[in-house]
Design a protein around this nucleic acid. Structure first.
Lengths: 194, 194
DNA sequence: CTTAGCTCGTACGGGAATATACGAGTTAAC
DNA sequence: GTTAACTCGTATATTCCCGTACGAGCTAAG
C-alpha cells in the first residue's frame, strides 16, 4: 500500500515541497489559490496537478501531513501523573500546532466531504478526551458537563487564542499562559461540588 | 443625515426585505450569493443592486442591522446587582444573538476593510467588558488575566457553542446552561488567590 | 545511454459570481 | 394625472479560479 509504481526521487521532493507550501499558505489563508501554493513551492502549476488531481486532494494531503506532524509531537508527551500538570504539558505543545493550521482546518471543512475532517482529526481530540476523563475520575476536573463539550470548548479557546495572536491583539509569548489558565479554569470542578 | 432625497415607501420595504433576507442567509452561510439573497427577499437582482452598489455594502448593512437588533435586546438587560447573576442574564440573551449571526460576522470579515467589523462590534464587547471589570472590583471575577482576553475568550465560547449546536453535536436546549457554566468557570477567581 | 518518469510553459475551456448597461413596465407621491 | 421613483428581465462584460490538453525539454534510474 506504500507505492504501486515506484516514484522517482525528484517527484518525492516536489510533493514534499508542495505539501509544505500548502500547509504554510493554507494555514494563514484558507482561500489560498493553487497557483499561489505552486509558486510558493517553487514549482510549476502543472507539476502540482501532476501529483494532486484537484484542490480537495491537495488540501487533504496538507491536513493529513499537519496532523501526522502533530501526532508525532503530542504522542511524545507524558500524560501520566497529576492530570492538571499533564494538561498543562499537553496544552503547551498543542497551542502552536493549532495556531499553525487553524485555517487549514477551515479550508478542509469547505472542500472535504462532511465529517471527513472530524474523522481525520480524531486522534488529538481523543487524547484530550482521555486525559479529561481520567482527571474526572480523580476529581481533578469537573464532571458535571458533557465531556464532548469540554473537549470542544478547549479547542475553541485554543483556536481563539491563535486568532488573537495572529491579529496582533495578543503577544505570542503570553498565549501559552493564557491558554493554560483558561482551560484549567474551564475544567476545574465548580465550587458547590456535592 | 437621514435622507437626502426622500425615498418611496416601496423602496423602504424592499430594502427591509433585502436586509432581512441577507441576515438570514448570511447567518447560515457566509458565502451566500447575491442572487440567492435577492431571491429569498422576493426581489429581482437588479432591485437589490439599485439599493446596494456591491456585496460589501450589503453585508455591512446586514451586520449593522443585526447589531442594532442585538443592542436593543441587550440594553434592556439589568446588569446591576451581583455580577455573576448579571453575567448569567447577559449570556442567556447573548448566545442566541451570536448563534443567529455568527457566520454573518465571518462574511463581514472577508469583505469589509480590516478592523471595520471590530469597530461595529464595539458596543456589545464594551458591555461585557464593563460587567467583567465591575465583577473584578468586587472580587467576583478573576483579575489575573488581561480583560481583553477574558472578553474575547467568552466570545469564542459563545461562538463555539453556536457552532456545535448548528452541527447537531449539541442540543439547542442545553446550550445556554453550558455557556453560562463555562463562562462562569472562565471568570471565577483561581483557587490560589493571594 | 536509453527509457520512463517528471517538469513546466502556454493555451484553452468552463463555471461561478460580481457588476454594468439598457430599457420597458409599474407604482407611489404630490 | 403627471412625474419621478422604483422594479426587474435580459444581455453582456469582467474577473477569478479550477481543471484539461498538448507538447517540448529535462533528469533520475536501470
Amino acid at each position: 500500500m506504500t507505492t504501486r509504481t515506484r516514484r522517482r526521487a525528484d517527484a518525492e521532493r516536489s510533493i514534499a515541497r508542495i505539501v509544505a507550501a500548502a500547509r504554510e499558505l493554507l494555514g494563514r489563508d484558507p482561500a489560498a489559490t493553487i497557483d499561489e501554493i505552486a509558486a510558493a513551492a517553487g514549482v510549476g502549476r502543472m507539476t502540482l496537478y501532476g501529483h494532486f488531481p484537484n484542490r480537495a486532494e491537495l488540501v487533504e494531503a496538507a491536513l493529513v501531513d499537519a496532523l501526522a506532524d502533530g501526532e508525532r509531537t503530542l504522542s511524545a508527551i507524558d500524560l501520566a501523573g497529576d492530570p492538571a500538570a499533564a494538561l498543562d504539558r499537553l496544552l503547551a505543545s498543542s497551542w502552536s500546532l493549532v495556531a499553525e493550521s487553524s485555517s487549514l482546518l477551515a479550508a478542509a471543512q469547505e472542500v472535504l466531504p462532511p465529517g471527513r475532517v472530524r474523522q481525520l482529526h480524531g486522534a488529538p481530540a481523543a487524547r484530550l478526551e482521555e486525559l479529561i476523563r481520567r482527571g474526572q475520575g480523580s476529581g481533578a476536573f469537573r464532571a458535571d458537563l458533557p465531556i464532548g463539550w469540554l473537549v470542544s470548548a478547549s479547542h475553541y479557546l485554543l483556536k481563539g487564542a491563535a486568532e488573537e495572536a495572529r491579529a496582533g491583539r495578543l503577544d505570542a509569548a503570553s498565549v501559552p499562559g493564557l491558554v493554560t489558565a483558561s482551560v484549567r479554569a474551564l475544567l476545574r470542578p465548580p465550587a458547590d461540588a456535592r
